[in-house]
Design a protein around this nucleic acid. Structure first.
Lengths: 340, 340
DNA sequence: ATGGGGAATGACAACGTTGTTATTTCCAGA
DNA sequence: TCTGGAAATAACAACGTTGTCATTCCCCAT
């Protein structure tokens, strides 16, 4: 059934419910928040009417008086990556579990923050996937809504949640070294400068050197971007070398898929002839034809940490501390000792 | 300088400005919106004070009384396709130009609509990219916020904007037929049932028959999904046939990229040995290594139409008419007469 | 000087909700 | 039958803003 027209307006308010249920609107307000001050029977009746009318609380009004909207805004990065979009899905779910509603904006951060302020969200999560462009610092003191940034460890004045990327790469290198690999290649320095990737590459070089493994200039492979076909092409390049590596570390899940595909098409068995370790750690890694060994923070853990930090930030905005998550190595079927 | 404490909170309201400027709060309200009812001098003084205190308007309160939120909610589809995400970017930009702010939700439609109702957006745009799942019809009469659906021509009770897909494919087939092609293949029936794709496939079969071209069962090629590597794999399959086609029509931009790449890697020149026509029409089609001939509504046109219809729907919600856009053929460098 | 009338400003009632306080209802105990 | 007092409900004042109406202020024509 259709909600009623209410004074020419298209909106069901607690007052409409009150009238219909024959109680005062303040009783409705209490009943809807399951207050113990309302008799069970009345509560049930009110809830029924609310459902029948398709009532939805007005965030604006609620926020106005209670100072809380139970909404979080997320500034969506422009790039599209499987791991990232999976992470975003999980954060959305996790925040929902914590009682928050999540909305996204694809505007650039500055304008997105404006939008979210208009909506009076309780907190804003910024995915600064590039670590570049409108210096995020400019947002400081811009509004009083707490802002949490993911992926720019120490490069903004805002509280952050981030992954110890260096450590992830270190784990990957060590794992391969322990298996006996010596010729290891890192795939994934995107054409466009990206501090997040640079960090991994530096860690790769350092760890290779530390373990006494050869790390010539071409042990790091440039790619156009960080997507499937970038990995695919990179792998083809690698295979054309005189002495191809016995193992590859990949900078992202999408790259990895391209790499594995290219290897398979070249008749190169994984992990028989080529071991692959991927950065990122999402369930999808397990569901590939060849479950891929990964080094990274499990997406679910990451999502939980981000959501938790967000909620904490809402409750105590003055605590501006950051969180750095430690990655783990998930050994699956894509790594093995090198062929003799 | 810091804003003053106001009732234990850090928030500057028009009342604070009023007190400081020695006027009433309603005068401040008017001055801030540059009303002609306030003397220039007073206005300037108020604006100065506002700046000094770092005033930021509370949109929740503003929206509560003035009926409009100037915001539009978009239900983001789960799938990721280049053409779609480009389209969404353009719609976002177009709506901004029209004075609206756009927010997204990645929840399933039912719950997303709920969220947007809470935020009191002025209209909701639903991308029903699958044409499936929670029967969109259930949303009917669910709230009074106007809903516009893209991509489900006639399959919902809501006003829609859609593309004449059949005509697009017809244009593609005719173009190839005129060039002299006879062995034409359509790539893109996704494993998962998708009415939007079925529509194109049916049109393909009908038009091939109408033009007297052969259209065996395998003239339509199944793919896993509609992404790059699906096209890549499909093309490899095609090339292994005894009598490969001289032309391919692809169901999406991403498929096309995969197809072109696979052709190139097989040493098959485009359009010398293989002509390619792609559905969708986004600027990116022009920027590929081989600018691709496309049949579809230009994304910019589509974005403008959607934004315009959305705004019209806000202004006159009772007009539930739909819009069907006619595609155009953009002949670029990927099509030529078949090799003799 | 007086009043008419526009310009400038102020007062006040919304908007939909929450939280606090006031009022009614109901029942046990006398 | 009455009373005390808890339980249930209603009334009402916020919240920060906009828009409408009422009031004050000035200046000019009478």
């Amino acid at each position: 059934m259709l909600p009623p027209f209410v004074g020419e307006r298209f909106m069901v308010t607690i007052k409409d419910i009150a009238e219909r249920a024959g109680v005062s609107f303040s009783t409705v307000s209490k009943a809807l928040r399951d207050s113990p001050l309302v008799k069970e029977e009345t509560k049930r009746r009110i809830l029924d009417v609310a459902r029948e009318l398709g009532y939805q609380p007005n965030f604006a009004a609620r926020r106005l008086v209670s100072r809380k909207s139970w909404a979080v805004g997320v500034v969506w990065p422009s790039v599209e990556r499987t791991a990232l979009s999976y992470l975003i899905t999980r954060i959305n779910a996790q925040l929902e579990r914590l009682g928050y509603v999540t909305v996204f904006s694809i505007n650039e951060p500055r304008s997105a923050v404006d939008v979210f302020r208009r909506f009076q969200v309780d907190a804003i999560l910024v995915f600064d996937d590039r670590g570049e462009r409108p210096p995020l610092g400019e947002l400081a003191g811009y509004g009083r809504i707490p802002i949490l940034v993911y992926g720019t460890m120490g490069r903004t004045p805002f509280p952050t949640v981030d992954v110890n990327r260096k450590q992830a790469i270190r784990l990957a290198v060590r794992h391969l070294a322990e298996l006996g690999h010596r010729r290891v290649v890192y795939v994934g320095r995107p054409a466009q400068y990206d501090p997040l990737q640079e960090e991994k590459i530096a860690a790769f070089r350092r760890e290779m050197a530390a373990l006494g493994l050869p790390c010539p200039e071409d042990a790091v492979l440039d790619t156009e971007g960080m997507a499937f076909h970038d990995g695919f092409i990179a792998m083809q390049t690698i295979l054309s070398r005189r002495a191809p590596p016995t193992a590859v570390i990949s900078g992202s899940f999408d790259l990895t898929r391209g790499i594995v595909r290219a290897a398979r098409e070249a008749g190169l068995s994984v992990p028989g002839r080529l071991s692959v370790v991927s950065y990122d750690n999402i369930p999808l890694a397990e569901e590939l034809d060849i479950p891929v060994t990964t080094a990274g923070v499990p997406a679910e853990t990451l999502a939980e940490a981000i959501a938790a930090r967000l909620v904490a930030l809402i409750e105590r905005p003055e605590d501006r501390s950051g969180v750095i998550l430690e990655p783990e190595l998930a050994v699956r079927s894509s790594t093995a000792p090198p062929a003799p």
